[in-house]
Design a protein around this nucleic acid. Sequence first.
DNA 1: GTTTGTGCAAATATTTTGCACTTGA
DNA 2: TCAAGTGCAAAATATTTGCACAAAC
Lengths: 141, 141
Amino acid sequence: MNDTTHRNPPRMTRQRAAVADALGDTDEFRSAQQLHELLRSRGDAVGLATVYRTLQALAVGGDVDVLRSEDGESLYRRCARREHHHHLVCRRCGRAVEIDGPTVEQWAASVGAAHGFIDIDHTVELWGTCAACRADDGRPN
Amino acid sequence: MNDTTHRNPPRMTRQRAAVADALGDTDEFRSAQQLHELLRSRGDAVGLATVYRTLQALAVGGDVDVLRSEDGESLYRRCARREHHHHLVCRRCGRAVEIDGPTVEQWAASVGAAHGFIDIDHTVELWGTCAACRADDGRPN
DNA sequence: GTTTGTGCAAATATTTTGCACTTGA
DNA sequence: TCAAGTGCAAAATATTTGCACAAAC
């Protein structure tokens, strides 16, 4: 039997632990660059390429959620639930609230089918400015 | 009176007309690079930077819709309606159908308010494979 | 001892920008 | 005329990849 599809569990390395840890203690979406910098400042430096590779692996495994900021940067966060959900994200600080699209899922599927499209996927994200950032007003972030 | 906010109408140049024209005859979302190549092949070449600048201007003016492909590239299309709407886009060829989010707009606003966020914006796009591309199956794009 | 992971530097890819030159009105 | 638009090449970003070396199991 040819098991090219089999995949061993990822090895536990200092770097993987560090990235997971950096993601662990926040409710904010963070970019790979931010996490890289955060780790460096903590004195637990990890190569930028490794940060990218690790985040990608975590995302594939469903351990972190990924979304694109309004200017196209990928942002990562370890969410409370593993099931599919959407977010209300602060465009200033990245803080996010997990939300359910009421009927979004089935609406998406039916609209797709009605037009003869298959393999429907949907992006539903809400962007805003959170209360804390609103108070911080003019300040540069 | 200081009118720093005033803006003259854009000048009609060969390049602007070419870009507008390239957008005009299709229902597909296209990238700046694709439009640049399309114009070149038509023998009506326009500098890539100009294509980007023009598309950006058209987008600000509300003359074209912009959205980000699943891999982060900006795609442009001149839609039939100028009012806010969403799209069901073929991830293979870019062909798109304009759709209305049933209650998306007010749902977005209320969810935002419920969490103390202001200036709520939402991204709702549907991606799929259209019937024509499905028939084309394995073929490279 | 294998095999997977890491770091670094170089490669991609998209989009933006500085600047001298052209052109529309 | 002369402000606005253009082309080109260089810069800025974000992300990926090749490869030699290190480390996990």
